[in-house]
Amino acid sequence: MGQVIIRDFEIPANDFTVAGEASSTVRKLLVQLGVAPDKIKRTAIAMYEAEINAVIHGHGGKAHVEISGDKITIVISDEGPGIEDLDLAMQEGYSTAPDSIREMGFGAGMGLPNMKKHADELDIRTEKGKGTVVTITVYF
């Protein structure tokens, strides 16, 4: 893996049938590249939670993925309402998701803590009324 592989995805708003498709595609790519299974799993989980968040909270968004020899960087951005209190949102169990999301098996306040747990680096930039940019890095 000498060169940098770049992929871009659209994340449609409120479409739970395709939510996770971007993460699935990236996961498959990492399998093809021969990345270690535990690293693939951590990447897939962190990206999937971020993708679900963009669908639930961000009115959809975009995913930009860069894979180089030693790491993957995933930038998920949305133009949603932003996160009002990031410290609170990072706590396990805190959620602002509606019941419709809980019925999907999410919205229990585990998304951001899960991303933090599985990513090597997690950077969240958010502004109320403007949107959120989540950057996930996993080293291979």
């Binding site: 739970f16 996770g20 993460s23 699935s24 996961r27 799993k41 999907m104």
Partner: peptide, 17 residues
Amino acid sequence: LTGLVNPQVIRTAEMMD
């Protein structure tokens, strides 16, 4: 094993191998 039935269950299983 789950009582939840929606496409995200399959996505989750996929991410978890």
